[in-house]
Design a protein around this nucleic acid. Sequence first.
DNA 1: ACCTGAACACCGTTCAAGT
DNA 2: ACCTGAACACCGTTCAAGT
Lengths: 247, 247
Amino acid sequence: MAEQQLPPVVARMWGRENSPRHGPRPSLDLAGIVAAAIRIADRDGLEGVTMGSVANQVGVATMSLYRYVGSKDELLIIMADAATPEPPSIDGRPWRDYLTDWTRANRDFLLDRPWVLALGQHTPPAGPRALRWLDRALAALADTGLDHGARINIATTLTGYATRQAALAHALNGAAGRGAADQIGGLTGYGEILGQVLDPDRYPELTAAVRANAFGAEPEWVDDADFTFGLDLLLDGIETLIARGRG
Amino acid sequence: MAEQQLPPVVARMWGRENSPRHGPRPSLDLAGIVAAAIRIADRDGLEGVTMGSVANQVGVATMSLYRYVGSKDELLIIMADAATPEPPSIDGRPWRDYLTDWTRANRDFLLDRPWVLALGQHTPPAGPRALRWLDRALAALADTGLDHGARINIATTLTGYATRQAALAHALNGAAGRGAADQIGGLTGYGEILGQVLDPDRYPELTAAVRANAFGAEPEWVDDADFTFGLDLLLDGIETLIARGRG
DNA sequence: ACCTGAACACCGTTCAAGT
DNA sequence: ACCTGAACACCGTTCAAGT
């Protein structure tokens, strides 16, 4: 009975549609459609993903897709989860080692598939893959004495960090993009743009930062050293918290 | 000469288009168009914002807008910046006090205008308002002995945290939405959904968390206590860093 | 029960014509 | 130099008709 009140998207992500199954066998399945859509997104970005292009890729009429997904929005949500890899495995490592790896893998996956970034994180994790990541982070923190709420919070904060970092790196490196957003980051040099536009009276600190070349000509300020820097900030905070709980 | 190579969006955000100015006076200006678009987004969300609806709101034909913006994408980027308030003022407060306030104000603004979340953070900050926020964060950290790179990094991490927190809170509270994404968060009870869907063997830790009621029936786990919790994690990390630099 | 052709409503953008 | 009507290409979605 409870099954019935699952939101349709969630039900579909977990293969829980009630499928009556008589009459002609379906010539497709959701997984095939989603895989095709992911292939298109990997090749052409998110704006290449069209109900038409997906149907075409799968060899079917556009309207047939509506037998398998409620709407394009639904398809996008399901795609984002299906495109997420498995989290790294723990192998008995201490929590700090593992979560460093976990967060970096999270960022790397988003750099590989930047279109997942564009899909936004407006949805609490609800797909099988997203929840695996959450589960693994909780497992890594199992022996720290932190309660479930704190552990969930930490995992959330770390994904947030990975997401932000990936978005920034992508924006600054992404000379490839066609959209208006991509004009800002690309080859032109972010620091130079700021230098041209800032009034030193209203933006004194930023002006100083630009003059100190804090935004190098190359987008080095979002490279791996910076990633580690911010991550260690977070992990130090977590370590403090654990010590406090024990002390 | 340098002015010329500003990306068009940036030039427009800072009022730097080269305006030849003869012939009939324009009956509109960018600011008016952007204000109208923001009004629509506040009322109807982002999907209410259409070149047609904006033009209508401003009393002009749809195509006239293309005299003022290069594309709809550009308009959205400019909107996001224009809708950002001024950052809180420092008033000589110590960095930790101020950055706490700064981060919370950042989140609150995004909760007020959730459509800015949907616009994504795929662009490095380039508008007058976004850069004011960055400048103020740098100012707060001026006396800490951290270099520009570190200070920029910290500001970035804190905005990332505010964004993530706002996105999550909005998703979990947002029974109001129409999209497929909003079905997951709303009234149904996020914890209940997880409970129905999780296989305890593959998701042992999450299952335990759900049983421990870590995702209360009310979405209390993204409330203010949680916000402060994660933020303090970050600030503790920063404090450690500053102390290390001085020691 | 599934697939599909035709059709609808809508939307971003271009262009040539007006003043 | 600005505004606009007409038109184009495209897209998500519905529905009734086919098998």
